[in-house]
């Protein structure tokens, strides 16, 4: 499970469990990034972010907090809904973005 840590308690190499944005909604650091004490902390301080979510262990981080079974489920449901077959990398990108959007709603629940 991801947990909250204060800026001063972050350790080098911990994995970010959320995508961080500034007040203009521009992405600062993406979810899954291994944190660097120098550069990343500076960015967070600059935008007044005091607390972040990190993954507790590497197993968590590697599966991105959603287990592969869940992703497989989402993929099956989505394929069934659209009723067409993914034929190439471009179709795949559209499909993957749609899968991502549904993982998001799973996390928020």
């Amino acid at each position: 499970m991801p947990r909250k840590v204060k800026l001063e308690d972050i350790e080098e190499g911990q994995i970010l469990a959320e995508t961080l944005s500034n007040k203009y909604d521009q992405i600062l650091i993406k979810k899954g990034t291994s944190l660097n004490l120098d550069s990343h902390i500076r960015v967070l301080k600059m935008w007044g972010i005091n607390e972040i979510l990190i993954f507790d262990d590497l197993v968590d981080a590697s599966s991105g907090s959603v287990n592969s079974e869940e992703i497989a489920n989402i993929e099956t449901i989505l394929l069934d809904e659209i009723g067409w077959i993914i034929k190439n990398e471009n179709d795949k990108l559209l499909f993957d973005v749609a899968v991502l959007s549904r993982i998001g709603t799973f996390n928020n629940e």
Binding site: T19, K30, K87, N88, D91, D96, L100
Partner: peptide
């Protein structure tokens, strides 16, 4: 499918694209 011969978005980073 004919479009993909001219339009290639397959290298987009899906996470930042979605964000």
């Amino acid at each position: 499918q004919l479009l993909w011969r001219r339009l290639d978005i397959s290298k987009f980073d899906k996470e930042s694209f979605y964000e």
